[in-house]
Protein backbone atom coordinates (compact mmCIF):
# COMPACT_ATOMS: atom_id res chain seq x y z
CA UNK A 1 0.00 0.00 0.00
CA UNK A 2 0.99 3.64 -0.29
CA UNK A 3 0.44 6.50 2.12
CA UNK A 4 -1.53 9.55 0.97
CA UNK A 5 -3.34 12.53 2.38
CA UNK A 6 -6.91 13.10 1.24
CA UNK A 7 -7.04 16.59 -0.21
CA UNK A 8 -10.56 16.48 -1.61
CA UNK A 9 -13.39 14.48 -3.02
CA UNK A 10 -14.61 14.04 -6.55
CA UNK A 11 -18.18 13.93 -7.78
CA UNK A 12 -19.09 12.53 -11.20
CA UNK A 13 -22.71 11.90 -11.93
CA UNK A 14 -22.05 10.68 -15.45
CA UNK A 15 -19.77 7.68 -14.92
CA UNK A 16 -19.53 3.97 -15.29
CA UNK A 17 -22.57 2.14 -13.94
CA UNK A 18 -20.28 0.04 -11.73
CA UNK A 19 -19.17 3.06 -9.70
CA UNK A 20 -22.61 4.50 -9.12
CA UNK A 21 -22.71 4.44 -5.34
CA UNK A 22 -19.05 4.98 -4.56
CA UNK A 23 -17.40 7.92 -2.82
CA UNK A 24 -14.32 9.06 -4.78
CA UNK A 25 -11.46 10.68 -2.88
CA UNK A 26 -8.62 12.75 -4.27
CA UNK A 27 -5.42 11.57 -2.56
CA UNK A 28 -1.97 13.18 -2.70
CA UNK A 29 0.72 10.53 -2.30
CA UNK A 30 3.26 11.09 0.50
CA UNK A 31 6.83 9.78 0.67
CA UNK A 32 8.31 7.91 3.61
CA UNK A 33 9.16 11.19 5.36
CA UNK A 34 5.48 12.16 5.20
CA UNK A 35 6.24 14.85 2.61
CA UNK A 36 3.70 15.29 -0.22
CA UNK A 37 4.86 14.04 -3.61
CA UNK A 38 3.67 15.51 -6.90
CA UNK A 39 1.49 12.46 -7.45
CA UNK A 40 -2.25 12.11 -7.09
CA UNK A 41 -4.62 9.19 -7.06
CA UNK A 42 -8.41 9.00 -7.23
CA UNK A 43 -9.45 6.18 -4.93
CA UNK A 44 -12.75 4.68 -3.86
CA UNK A 45 -13.42 5.14 -0.15
CA UNK A 46 -14.03 1.87 1.68
CA UNK A 47 -13.57 3.03 5.29
CA UNK A 48 -15.31 6.41 5.61
CA UNK A 49 -12.21 8.55 5.30
CA UNK A 50 -12.51 12.30 4.80
CA UNK A 51 -10.48 15.33 3.67
CA UNK A 52 -7.37 15.88 5.78
CA UNK A 53 -7.02 12.21 6.74
CA UNK A 54 -3.72 10.45 6.16
CA UNK A 55 -4.68 7.08 4.67
CA UNK A 56 -3.38 3.88 3.13
CA UNK A 57 -4.64 2.90 -0.29
CA UNK A 58 -4.21 -0.34 -2.21
CA UNK A 59 -3.87 -0.41 -5.98
CA UNK A 60 -4.17 -2.92 -8.77
CA UNK A 61 -6.53 -5.85 -8.65
CA UNK A 62 -6.19 -5.95 -4.87
CA UNK A 63 -8.36 -2.84 -4.89
CA UNK A 64 -11.26 -4.98 -6.09
CA UNK A 65 -11.09 -7.23 -3.03
CA UNK A 66 -13.83 -5.45 -1.10
CA UNK A 67 -17.60 -5.94 -1.12
CA UNK A 68 -17.88 -2.40 -2.45
CA UNK A 69 -15.49 -2.70 -5.42
CA UNK A 70 -15.81 -6.41 -6.29
CA UNK A 71 -16.10 -6.77 -10.09
CA UNK A 72 -16.13 -2.99 -10.48
CA UNK A 73 -13.82 -0.85 -12.63
CA UNK A 74 -11.66 0.27 -9.71
CA UNK A 75 -7.88 0.10 -9.24
CA UNK A 76 -7.39 2.15 -6.06
CA UNK A 77 -9.24 1.87 -2.77
CA UNK A 78 -8.67 3.65 0.54
CA UNK A 79 -8.58 0.77 3.06
CA UNK A 80 -7.19 2.36 6.25
CA UNK A 81 -6.96 5.70 8.04
CA UNK A 82 -3.57 6.20 9.67
CA UNK A 83 -3.61 6.92 13.42
CA UNK A 84 0.14 6.95 13.98
CA UNK A 85 3.24 6.24 11.97
CA UNK A 86 6.75 5.56 13.26
CA UNK A 87 9.62 5.65 10.79
CA UNK A 88 13.30 4.82 11.41
CA UNK A 89 12.74 4.99 15.14
CA UNK A 90 10.90 8.31 15.32
CA UNK A 91 7.27 9.33 15.08
CA UNK A 92 6.46 11.10 11.83
CA UNK A 93 2.70 11.33 12.17
CA UNK A 94 0.19 11.31 15.01
CA UNK A 95 -3.38 11.83 13.91
CA UNK A 96 -4.72 13.19 17.20
CA UNK A 97 -1.92 15.65 17.75
CA UNK A 98 -2.32 17.48 14.43
Amino acid sequence: MQIAKIIGSLVATQKDEGLRDHKLLVCQVHNHENKPKDQYVIAVDAVGAGPGDLVLYATGSSARQTNLTKDRPCDAVVMAVVDSWDQDGSNVYEKWSE
Binding site: M1, I3, H32, A46, V47, G48, A49, L56, T66, M79, A80, V81, V82, D83, S84, W85, D86, Q87, D88, V92
Partner: peptide
Protein backbone atom coordinates in the same frame (compact mmCIF):
# COMPACT_ATOMS: atom_id res chain seq x y z
CA UNK B 1 11.89 0.62 8.37
CA UNK B 2 8.74 1.66 10.19
CA UNK B 3 5.30 0.86 11.56
CA UNK B 4 1.82 2.21 10.90
CA UNK B 5 -1.17 1.95 13.23
CA UNK B 6 -4.68 2.23 11.76
CA UNK B 7 -7.73 1.43 13.86
CA UNK B 8 -10.20 2.65 11.23
CA UNK B 9 -9.59 0.12 8.47
CA UNK B 10 -11.36 -2.34 6.20
CA UNK B 11 -13.02 -5.15 8.17
CA UNK B 12 -10.95 -8.32 8.24
CA UNK B 13 -7.68 -6.45 8.76
CA UNK B 14 -8.01 -6.20 12.51
CA UNK B 15 -4.85 -7.36 14.23
CA UNK B 16 -2.84 -7.43 11.01
CA UNK B 17 0.42 -5.48 11.52
CA UNK B 18 1.15 -2.71 8.98
CA UNK B 19 4.84 -2.05 8.42
CA UNK B 20 6.81 0.32 6.20
CA UNK B 21 9.19 -1.58 3.91
CA UNK B 22 12.08 -0.24 1.87
Amino acid sequence: TGRVVATQQYEGLEGVPLQVVQ
